[in-house]
Design a binder for these strands. Structure first.
Lengths: 328, 328
DNA sequence: TCGAACTTTCGAAGCGCTTCAACACTGAGA
DNA sequence: TCTCAGTGTTGAAGCGCTTCGAAAGTTCGA
């Protein structure tokens, strides 16, 4: 293993000079700097992360607690993680993936000085991890927007605004009766933050627009077909659909189109999902992109900002935007 | 921050005794051990990871290079990562998620002593990373099975055997003309290892069974509908389908069932995908589970074994198994 | 009773890095 | 000429842990 001492010897300078060349924390003459950098390159030196973290009391690692279970929104989770990892590297940080989704894992990482900060995805409103985090003394950011006291900074997509946007669009297309085909029942009944916020925005926008709107939980399997059939049978006047359910989307889109053809009207669907998912499904009026990668990047930016400047920003919500087929 | 010195003082022993209690590398009397453990608990001590890695020259971290791009097989990637992370914790390791999928990232992690070993997913046959890995001096395992020299141990699902299994099943159900609806064209033409192996097993099994079999690349979007339509139009005698394409599966299943109904025969589908994906799609004859989480776990086990015993195992392929609706 | 052979515990030397205080220069101002 | 401020560099003291060699204490057989 090549150490800083080898570099120093090869460059004919002291160890501390090499260190200062790397960190840039003190002025070093151009000549010396060149010599040191050449030595570093020729020896292929890279500093020992452990030694560095011991001496500098910081690890350049961010702990990420991601919900790894399959099920809802794998694409979204994946993209957020990608955003986090990519952006973290830009700031010079690496990502330690935390195994279980409990407080223990967070504590282990923080107290063992394995990470400088923590990023937590998929937080429930009354999640015990929030208290853990605020008691930990490590900077941390939630990806999500739990209700209640804001003791930890949050980054998320503005689901409430997305509800408004979808309704406005469907109304502009001429639809008077709308349905939100949402997350699976278990997500709805857990009062998962994003599902709640989406429904709230959707219903408020319906009222503001003077149209009727109903919210329906929907399994993310092919059972969604039955759900949609049920909705369309019960109220045949519903022609505007807002779908937020990745697994169900292909089934739902097909079903709605078929039933529409059968009864001779033209239902429209606005989907809320990542762009590439939307593109793989035909017959969508529009979609609202969940900017998953941007969410990850924004959360990472926020935590890096806290880390470097000590700032304590509160909440940041990314605005929704329509993408998709231009109005016919 | 609580250090080992605090623990030692509180327990009335020396620092080294505390260290030996934690590592178990030397005999410590039960009485002393109890006292130390109580001190550790009451102070909430956890050793500084950096200091530990500096002194012991090992980090207890495994670097994982996962293909984070969305697209093919998000579910599978997710489950493999879950398997890796979970199993790693059981062995006392944490997972560092590597950002980019190039050799640089691997070198950075290894040479900076950030990890003890490397796990690399999604390796192409002539991947330059293979050489990087074997030159790195760190234990490493590939998840996948590149062709060519076996310079790095591999763990993967036995796609070739899966091809045989699917054909045997479809033949047992009475089908004489089979089609493999496979990965997207770009994956096929890259000669991605798993796609090649699957096709090879499928075709060999068709020949051995005396039935005809054809292989078709298929986009993982709704365009898959056209692909399948094309296949069924061109050879209406094809009634046995083997589908290996997560994104296309819902579309493909629906299309095949519809066309079957139209022409009055009973096509059968065997799907190759994770169990939970299969469950969300109706009308599958059977499915062959991709034991994604088990693959991750097996790869982790292998690397931990190498790490602890220095063993150099070569290739491990997990056998396929049919799960699904019992024969009607 | 003495020493050999254990068992249990300890002191101290690092591991490779950062960073502080201090030193040696240089040039400018008095 | 002497100070003073600034610039560039260095030596050495840790950071918190592991681990080796050795010390202290205990047991046992001769």
């Amino acid at each position: 293993m090549v150490t800083i001492a080898d570099v120093a010897q090869k460059a004919g300078v002291s160890i501390s000079t090499v260190s200062y060349v790397m960190s840039g924390k003190r002025a070093i003459s151009q000549e010396t700097r060149d010599r040191v950098e050449k030595a570093i390159d020729s020896l292929g030196f890279s500093p020992h992360a452990g030694a560095r973290s011991l001496a500098s009391r910081s690890t350049n690692v961010i702990g990420l607690q991601a919900p790894l279970r399959t099920g809802v929104d794998v694409h979204v989770v994946m993209q957020i993680v990608t955003g986090v990892v990519t952006q973290a590297r830009k700031h010079g940080y690496d990502i330690l993936l935390l195994a279980s989704d409990d407080s223990k894992a967070l504590q282990r990482a923080a107290k063992g000085s394995m990470v400088d900060a923590l990023l937590v995805m998929d937080v429930e409103s009354d999640d015990p991890r929030i208290d853990t985090l605020s008691g930990l003394g490590h900077p941390s950011v939630l990806i999500g927007l739990p209700a209640g006291r804001r003791s930890v900074p949050c980054v998320d997509f503005d689901f409430e605004a997305a509800g408004w946007l979808a309704v406005d669009r469907l109304v502009a297309l001429g639809h008077k009766r709308l349905a939100l085909i949402g997350s699976p029942p278990e997500v709805m009944s857990r009062h998962t933050s994003y599902a709640d916020r989406l429904a709230r925005g959707f219903l408020a926008a319906c009222e503001a627009n003077g149209v009727t709107g109903t919210v329906h939980a929907c399994p993310s399997t092919s059972e969604s077909i039955a759900t949609v059939d049920g909705v369309m049978t019960e109220d045949p006047g519903i022609t505007g659909f807002f779908v937020h359910n990745e697994g169900a989307l292909p089934h739902v889109a097909t079903t709605i189109a078929q039933r529409g053809r059968q009864r001779g009207d033209e239902p429209a669907i606005v989907a809320l999902c990542p762009d590439d998912v939307a593109r793989s499904v035909p017959g969508l009026a529009d979609s609202i992109a969940v900017p998953a990668e941007a969410i990850g990047a924004a959360a990472t930016d926020m935590i890096c900002e806290i880390l470097s400047s000590g700032a304590k920003p509160a909440v940041r919500l990314l605005p929704p935007a329509l993408t998709g087929a231009p109005t016919p």
